[in-house]
Simulated assay, not measured.
Amino acid sequence: MEQAVFTGYQPINNINIYYEFYPRQTSKKTFVLLHGFLSSTFTFRHLISLLKKEYQVLSIDLPPFGKSAKCHQYVYSYKNLAQTVIKLTESLGLKNMTFIGHSMGGQIVLNILHMMPEIADKAILLCSSAYLKRSKLPLIITSYIPYFHMFVKYWFARTGVKKNLQDALYNHSIINDEMINGYLQPFLQDEIFIALTRMIRDREGDLPTEALKQIKTPCLLIWGDHDKSIPLKFGEQLNKDLTNSELIVLKETGHALPEERPFEVFESIKRFV
């Protein structure tokens, strides 16, 4: 029998958040999945199919990505995204959570752990964003030019989904139409580019070293040795700065771990928890 999945929208912080929830009565643990920049719940489809057999799973489309709303009033800072995730888990009454964050989602997880240490027993960071500075002032100022979102759209169209996937993956042979269309779908409307323009202004830098050292939650770091987006040296530095962490490096693997190595990631998570 196919396992139930509850998909829906929840108004949190004045924005509609899309989520997928896979309940499992026999599991006391819930995994909360947070995707990366220009991505969505779609990126976790292979990992979800493995996790949901044994655990409860909540996967969230971080605004403005995926099916979550694109709102002009919403503040797209990491701090506000972290607070939005916390409020969503509270509204669903979830306890005993372990967070899994990929890329930018990893930075949101770190913000959550820094903000609310007691919320999670453990965390898994997949090629997590780390040590990224705030956008430079000229870019922030330029973003206020009318129709700047059309420049953002042009940049996205020029690089294209396939090129972005080739940069994120070591093994290009797994790129197919389903994958390309899955990543392209949320970018077919102009609202996303207006929201991304807001994100250029709102996004603060990644957590500084002093803040990282205050996080005591046990963290498992999993990295691809051929990650071009967030090279392994950042994972090694993050492993030093977090007081309670371990680092696993997967060979011949790029940035998109949930696409390339879902089974190896799942096995490492099971061992860790």
Rank of each mutant, 00 (worst) to 15 (best):
Q3C: 08
A4C: 13
A4T: 14
G8L: 02
P11C: 13
N13G: 04
I15F: 10
N16E: 15
Y19S: 01
S27F: 02
F31E: 02
V32Q: 00
H35K: 00
L38T: 11
L38D: 06
S40F: 02
F42W: 07
F42E: 04
L47M: 01
S49K: 04
V57R: 04
F65G: 00
Y78R: 10
N80P: 04
K87Y: 11
L88Q: 04
E90M: 09
S91M: 13
L92I: 13
M97N: 11
G101N: 08
G101V: 08
H102E: 13
G106D: 11
Q107H: 14
V109A: 01
L113C: 00
M115G: 10
M115H: 14
E118K: 14
K122S: 03
I124A: 04
C127V: 05
C127M: 07
C127S: 15
Y131K: 11
K136I: 12
L137D: 12
L139I: 12
L139W: 09
I141W: 14
Y144S: 10
I145M: 11
F148P: 06
H149M: 07
V152P: 03
K153S: 13
K153E: 15
A157V: 09
T159Y: 14
T159I: 14
T159W: 04
G160Y: 08
V161T: 13
V161H: 03
K163V: 11
N164D: 10
Q166K: 15
D167V: 06
H172I: 08
I174H: 06
G182K: 00
Y183Q: 06
Y183H: 06
P186E: 09
F187E: 00
F187C: 02
F187D: 01
L188E: 15
L188A: 10
Q189M: 10
Q189S: 15
D190H: 07
I192S: 09
F193C: 08
L196V: 03
R198W: 09
R198Q: 15
D202P: 09
E210A: 12
A211T: 11
A211D: 13
L212F: 01
K213A: 15
L220C: 04
L220R: 01
L220H: 01
L221N: 11
H226A: 08
H226S: 10
P231A: 00
L232Q: 06
K233F: 07
F234H: 09
Q237C: 09
N239F: 09
N239G: 06
K240M: 09
L242W: 12
N244P: 06
N244Q: 13
N244W: 08
V249M: 02
E252Y: 09
H255L: 07
H255W: 07
F266M: 01
F266E: 01
K270Y: 03
F272C: 03
F272E: 01
V273N: 13
